[in-house]
Amino acid sequence: MYASKKYLTVAWILVLPALLIRIFTTIYPIIETFRISFFDVKLLRGTNEFVGLQNYIDLFGDSKMLTSLSFTAIFVIGSMAGHLVLGIALALILNMKFAGQKVLRTIVLLPWAMPMVVIAMASKWAFNNDYGLVNDFIRWFAPSFQLDWLIHTNTARFAVIAVDLWKDIPFFAILILAGLQFISSDIYEAAKIDGAGAVRSFFRLTLPLLAKSILVLSIFFTMWRITSFDVVYAMTSGGPGESTALIAYRVTTEAFTNLNTGYAASIAIVLFLVMAVLGGISMSATKRVDY
C-alpha cells in the first residue's frame, strides 16, 4: 500500500511540469479571453471598462460581423461538399490498381504538404486577370475572356473556396483511402457474383462501410474550416470590402488592427463555443454510427 502511494506521488511529480505548462498555455488563455469579452478594452483609447454582455450584443448587430458569418457558412458548406464529393472520388481512383499507383499517391499529396500561406500568395497571382495562370488556361478555349477574380465578391469567394479545396482534398482523400484499404475484396467479389455492378456496390457496400470514417472526418474538417485564417489573410485580406473575411480573420482584425481587444475576445468565445458543440457532436456521432 505504501509502495503504491509512493509510486503514485512520483508519477504526479513527473507529470506536474507538463500539466502546469498545459494549464498555462491552454486553460489560462481561455479563461482570460472569456474575462476580457465582458470588458470594453480599446488599446488606442486606453479604455478598460466592464460592459457586461454589450460586446456580444454588438456582435450580432455588426454588419461586418454578419457578412463574416454568412461567408463562413458559405465557405464551410461549399468546402465540405467539395471535400466529400471530390475527396471520395479521388480516394476511389487512388485505390485502383494500375502502373505508377504509388507515384501518383505521392504527387497527389504535394499540395497538402505545402504551407497554406505560400499557396494563397501564389493563388493571388494565379487569379490575376492580366498574367494569371487561371485566365491564361481559360483563354486557350475563349481568347477574349477577361475577369479579375479577386475584385468581385462572388468570384473572390469562389476562388478562396477553390484554393482551400485544392490544398486539403488530397489529405482528405488519403484518409478515406486508408479506410478503403480495410474493406476486404471478398465482399466485392460476392456482390459481383450476386449481380451488383460498380455503382450499386459503391452505394450499398463502400459508403456504408466508410460511413463512420466519413462522418468523423467531415466533422473535424468542418472544425478546421471554421477556424481557417491563413488562406484569406494571404490571398484576399478579407476583400473585396469585407466579403471574404472569415470569422477567424475577423478576430485577428479586431484584435491586432483595430486594437479592440474586448470585442475580439467576444467573437473568439462564440467561435470557441461553436467548436465545443461540434466536438460534442463528433464524439456522440462516433459512438452512434458503427458498421
Results as ranks from 00 to 15, higher is better:
Pro115Lys: 07
Gly100His: 08
Ile27Ser: 06
Asp136Trp: 14
Ala255Ile: 10
Leu90Thr: 03
Gln101Ser: 11
Phe158Arg: 02
Phe98Trp: 06
Val270Ile: 15
Phe34Asp: 00
Asp40His: 13
Thr72Gln: 00
Ala245Gln: 14
Thr236Leu: 12
Pro111Tyr: 09
Leu90Met: 15
Ser63Cys: 00
Asp230Pro: 02
Gly238Cys: 09
Glu254Asp: 14
Thr252Asn: 11
Phe60Gly: 04
Ala191Tyr: 03
Asn128Cys: 11
Ile36Phe: 10
Thr253His: 13
Leu133Asp: 00
Arg204Ile: 07
Ala73His: 03
Asn260Gly: 03
Asp230Asn: 06
Gln181Phe: 06
Lys192Asn: 11
Ile57Met: 08
Val216Asn: 02
Ala91Trp: 01
Asp194Trp: 00
Ala190Asn: 13
Leu90His: 06
Met223Pro: 01
Trp125Ser: 12
Leu86Phe: 14
Asp40Trp: 07
Ala126Thr: 10
Gly61Lys: 09
Ser201Lys: 09
Ala276Cys: 05
Ser68Val: 11
Ile74Pro: 00
Thr236His: 08
Ile23Cys: 12
Pro115Ile: 09
Val76His: 02
Glu242Cys: 05
Gly239Val: 13
Leu209Ile: 14
Trp149Gln: 02
Ile36Val: 12
Ile77Gln: 02
Ala73Ile: 15
Ser37Phe: 04
Ala173Tyr: 04
Ala89Lys: 01
Gly195Glu: 03
Gly197Lys: 08
Ala264Gly: 12
Ser237Cys: 05
Ile281Phe: 13
Lys102His: 11
Val85Cys: 04
Leu180Trp: 02
Arg250Phe: 15
Asn135Gly: 01
Asp168Ile: 14
Gly87Pro: 05
Met96Val: 10
Gly195Phe: 13
Phe38Cys: 06
Leu147Gly: 00
Gly262Ile: 03
Arg204Phe: 06
Leu215His: 05
Asn129Gly: 08
Asn95Ile: 07
Leu271Met: 14
Phe220Lys: 03
Ser37Leu: 09
Ile57Val: 14
Ser68Ala: 15
Leu104Gln: 05
Gly46Pro: 07
Ile151Cys: 02
Met96Pro: 00
Lys5Tyr: 15
Phe272Gln: 08
Asn154Trp: 08
Tyr56Gly: 04
Thr236Glu: 09
Pro115Ala: 12
Arg225Val: 06
Leu150Trp: 02
Thr257Leu: 12
Met114Thr: 15
Ile23Thr: 15
Phe256Ile: 09
Val199Thr: 14
Leu90Asn: 06
Ile138Asn: 00
Phe60Arg: 04
Ser213Ile: 15
Val108Ser: 09
Leu273Tyr: 11
Met223Cys: 05
Ala265Asn: 09
Leu210Trp: 04
Ala190His: 10
Ser144Ala: 14
Thr252Val: 11
Arg225Glu: 12
Val118Gln: 08
Thr257Phe: 07
Leu8Pro: 02
Phe158Lys: 03
Ala142Glu: 12
Val10Tyr: 13
Asp290His: 08
Ser218His: 04
Trp125Ile: 14
Thr261Tyr: 13
Thr9Val: 11
Tyr233His: 15
Arg157Lys: 14
Asn128Ser: 14
